[in-house]
Amino acid sequence: MISLRDIHKKFNPDTHNEVYALRGVSLDIADGEFVTIIGTNGSGKSTLLNVLAGTVTPDSGAVLLKGKDVTRQKDFERAKQIARVFQNPFMGTAPDMTIAENLLIASLRGRRHHLRMGLSASRRIFFAGQIKRLEMQMEDRLDNIIGSLSGGQRQAVSLLMAVIQKPDVLLLDEHTAALDPKSAAQIIRLTKAFVESQQLTTFMVTHSMQQALDLGSRTLMMHQGQIIDDIPAAEKARLSPDDLLDKFAQLRKTEKLTDAMLEQLRREYR
C-alpha cells in the first residue's frame, strides 16, 4: 500500500545548521497494518511522517501510495488519501468555528468545495451520529465553538475528523504527548477502536515504549535518520519495555549509540 524508496532529506544544506534528517529510508507497509515508530531525539521520526504527509519534500527518493508516485504532490492534494492528527491538540481544529463546521471541513477532505449550503439538516444528523462515537456527550453541543473545549476533547475531535472520511493512511504524530494521562488513555482507547473498526492503515509516532508495544502490528525503531530495527507482531508480543531498552543498549555496544544518548533514552521512555 505505501512504499518509501531510499528517502534522503537534509535541512539547511551546506550551512552551519545543516541537519541530515533522513538517510536513505526505505519501507514497505501493507494494507491495514498498524505501525508504531519510536526513536531517539532527532532520529527523523517526525520528518518521516511529514514526508509521508507531503508537508516536506524529500531531496531524493520516492513515496508511493497504492502504487502511484506521490513524492511531488502537495500536502493538500495528498490529503484526500492521508489524514493526520498533530501532537498539538490546538493544531487540528479551527478554534473560532463550531464543532459542526469543523466536522464539515473534515468530511469534505479531498473533495471539492462548492457553493452549496454547508450545514444542511441531513449533514447535521450525520455529524451528530458521528460524534456519538467519542462518547463524550457532545451530541447537543455541535454548535459550540471549538475554542471552548479542553485539550483532550479537542484532540478527540481531531481524531474523529481524521477518520470521519475513511483515509487510506492515518498518521498520528505523538498525538497524546501533550495530554494529561486520563485524556491520553481515552484517546488511545478511541484510536484503537477507530483503527480496528475501519481497518485503517496507520502510522503512529510515539514517545511511550508501552504504547509502542501495546498498539499496532509492527514497531519500527529509528536512529539518526535510519530505521535500525523492525519488530513484527509476533516478537512484539513477547517484549517488555525493558527489553526494548536492552535492544538500545546493544546498539551502544555496536557503537551506534553514545552513553549520553542511552541515558537520555532511559529518561525519556521511563
Binding site: 508537508t55 493538500f76 490529503a79 484526500k80 493544531m91 479551527a94 478554534p95 469534505l108 477532505r109 468545495h113
Partner: peptide
C-alpha cells in the same frame, strides 16, 4: 474561514 483560522489544519484537510 477555516483557512484563515488554522491554515495548517486547512491544508491537512485538503484545502
Amino acid at each position: 474561514r477555516a483557512t484563515g483560522n488554522n491554515p495548517a489544519m486547512a491544508a491537512a484537510s485538503g484545502i
